[in-house]
């Protein structure tokens, strides 16, 4: 049995310790907001937070998450009202949407560590998240907007 804390809820899962965290999230626990794109850490669709870092759950063994804090897109904000989520809606960022939970989870680490990111900061942070629909420009705008909302909550 492996003990996990996911979105502040405790879970015990009976899986091989080498199972990718992504498999456990989606198949064992039914948290399907996190997506499977490539399985080899190249696309970013599977990004979740492990102790606040944007890890790729497809190559992270569940044993690495044992006893640690995991946050998925479902738990990023209690009412799905993280500034990033609001900005995403406001600017209609998603096209097919498949990459977007990974995009938002990566952007959330950027905004936690840098309250006022430049375009260069955004590009450096988001370079590992691929969007096959090419929504990159809207993603960048939405991150800027979310940063502004974060600095002046009244704007949200």
């Amino acid at each position: 049995m492996i003990k996990l804390t996911i979105n502040q809820k405790k879970h015990q899962v009976d899986v091989d310790p080498d199972t990718p965290l992504l498999w456990v999230l989606r198949d064992t626990l039914g948290l399907v907001g996190t997506k499977y794109g490539c399985g080899v850490a190249q696309c970013g669709a599977c990004v979740v937070h492990l102790n606040g870092e944007a890890v790729r759950s497809c190559v992270t063994k569940v044993s690495r998450a044992a006893g640690q804090k995991v946050v998925t897109i479902e738990g990023l904000a209690a009412r799905a009202d993280h500034p990033l989520q609001k900005a995403w809606l406001e600017l209609d960022v998603a096209q097919c949407g498949y990459c977007q939970s990974g995009q938002i989870m990566s952007a959330a680490v950027l905004l936690k560590e840098n309250k006022n990111p430049t375009d260069a900061d955004i590009d450096a942070a988001m370079a590992g998240n691929i969007c096959r629909c090419g929504t990159y420009l809207r993603i960048r705008d939405a991150i800027r907007l979310a940063a502004e909302m974060q600095r002046n909550p009244s704007k949200g």
Binding site: A41, E53, A54, V55, S106, A107, L110, E113, A125, G128
Partner: peptide, 15 residues
Amino acid sequence: VYAMKCSNCHQATNT
């Protein structure tokens, strides 16, 4: 940096 830290992809052992 940010969401692009080495250990986000590079685990303790080879994948």
